[in-house]
Simulated scan of single mutants.
Amino acid sequence: MTAFEPQSIRSYSQEDVQQILHLAIARQADDKDREFSYEQLLEIAAELEISPDSLKLAERDWLVQQGQVQQRKAFDTYRKRRFQKRLGNYAIVNGFLILVNLITGGGISWSLYILVFCGLPVGLDIWNTFQIKGEEYEMAFQRWNRKHQIKKSISTVLNKWFKALQA
């Protein structure tokens, strides 16, 4: 399609329309902090002939997606903190062993072997922590999410139980 075609001949697929509107909204909203009210969202949907029911379903799906994004961010933060703790432990233990080796032997001999041998699991931990795609990541996320949900459920039940006891 060229830019010189008459407007009546132009036609777009649904995906093309979504992309064009997405770009137009992005250009119009120069201020990233600008927010739209729900009424404005309803008006935009009405102009695009989107039913309020479809809009509500889309909003619900969007909220679910945002919740999943937040959970993944929390999981990634958890993994990075766990890695930092392990790296700190590795540095402290190996620093101590190197210091002991320097004091007792006057150089670094046997502690270097321990440093390298213990460095292999740290290297694998780096790989596993910062790899955020793939089947292993998904399995780890699902395990973490289940544990997180179980803790949340237990906490909710205990809070209700304690409130019932206090009343």
Rank of each mutant, 00 (worst) to 15 (best):
S155L: 07
D76G: 01
A91F: 11
K147G: 10
N94K: 01
V17N: 04
P52M: 06
Q14V: 13
I108W: 03
L41R: 00
L158K: 07
T156Y: 08
I50V: 15
I98Y: 04
A140Y: 03
F4D: 12
F75K: 00
I20A: 01
A26P: 02
S153G: 06
P6W: 02
A58V: 05
R81G: 04
R143W: 06
D31S: 06
R34D: 03
V17R: 10
L42G: 01
L115T: 09
I98M: 13
H148A: 11
L124N: 14
N89E: 07
G134T: 06
Q66L: 15
Y38R: 04
K151N: 14
K133M: 10
N145T: 08
W62Y: 13
F75V: 05
K56M: 07
G134M: 09
E135I: 08
K163T: 04
P6K: 04
Y90R: 01
I25L: 15
M1H: 11
E47I: 03
D30K: 10
V116E: 01
G67E: 13
A3L: 12
G88V: 05
F130A: 13
G88Y: 05
R86F: 09
L112K: 02
Q149V: 14
E49M: 09
L124V: 08
I103C: 01
L102W: 04
L41A: 03
Q7N: 11
T104W: 07
V100K: 09
L87Y: 03
T2K: 11
G107K: 05
D30S: 12
K56F: 08
I103N: 07
P6I: 00
K151M: 08
N128P: 00
D16E: 15
F75Q: 02
A24L: 13
L57M: 07
N159L: 13
K160L: 14
S109E: 07
W144K: 02
K163R: 10
K147I: 09
S109Q: 14
D76R: 03
N159I: 09
A74S: 15
N94V: 12
V122I: 15
I98Q: 03
A3M: 09
Y38F: 08
Q65K: 15
R82L: 14
V122R: 04
A74M: 12
D125W: 12
I50Y: 02
K151E: 14
I98L: 13
S13Y: 11
K151A: 15
E138P: 03
V69N: 03
L42V: 10
Q142M: 12
E138A: 12
I126F: 15
F36K: 00
A167T: 13
E49W: 06
Y78W: 15
K163W: 06
A74P: 02
V69L: 15
A29F: 02
A140W: 01
R79D: 02
I50T: 08
V122P: 00
N101P: 01
Q19K: 15
D33T: 07
L42E: 06
L87F: 15
N94F: 04
R10N: 06
R86S: 11
E136N: 10
S37L: 11
F117N: 02
W127E: 13
Y113C: 02
Q7W: 08
E43M: 13
F96C: 15
A46Q: 09
L97T: 08
F162P: 00
G123D: 12
L115N: 06
M1K: 05
D33P: 00
K152Q: 15
N145W: 07
I114A: 13
S54K: 01
